[in-house]
């Protein structure tokens, strides 16, 4: 990237503060996607421990039974639920579903594609993720 391109870069891409809840959802989608990718790789490593026999498997699984392990799994639950809910919203939008209809715009030009259906989809995904995390923590810490 050359200086005269004047691109914002990752910092600008990840700055959610200027464009409302849709941009926050965009950032959360990226973060949860990266988090789930990390979990997927760790999960493959974890399950490969079965090759070390029962002792090795139990030793590794014991890591998830700690407080830190429970918090990590609760985060995975949250990321998974948000990524699924918001992903369905985005996939529908990508097909042109729920993004409004073309029409002559009237001032102050509220964009139809950023309508209440999508906002409800984003807020619902966040709420479901929070509820799923709380339920997961209640189950894990309630043992």
């Amino acid at each position: 990237m050359t200086k005269d391109e004047h691109r914002e870069g990752i910092k600008g891409m990840a700055n959610p503060g200027r464009y409302g809840i849709e941009r926050i959802a965009y950032l959360l989608m990226r973060l949860s996607g990266l988090g789930l990718l990390g979990y997927f790789i760790a999960h493959i490593y974890e399950t490969s421990n079965i090759l070390r026999g029962r002792m090795g498997w139990d030793d590794f699984l014991a890591m998830t039974q700690t407080t830190e392990g429970h918090i990590f799994l609760a985060l995975v639950i949250g990321m998974c639920v948000f990524h699924t809910g918001n992903g369905i919203r985005i996939m529908l939008g990508h097909g042109g579903v729920g993004v409004g209809k073309p029409a002559r715009p009237d001032y102050p030009y509220e964009p139809a594609s950023q309508n209440y259906r999508h906002k409800i989809g984003i807020y619902s995904s966040i709420v479901f993720a929070a509820v799923a995390m709380m339920y997961g923590m209640a189950v894990m810490f309630g043992e």
Partner: peptide, 9 residues
């Protein structure tokens, strides 16, 4: 990725 910032500005 349908962030929608283009429409908002």
């Amino acid at each position: 990725h349908f962030a929608g910032s283009c429409s908002q500005v």
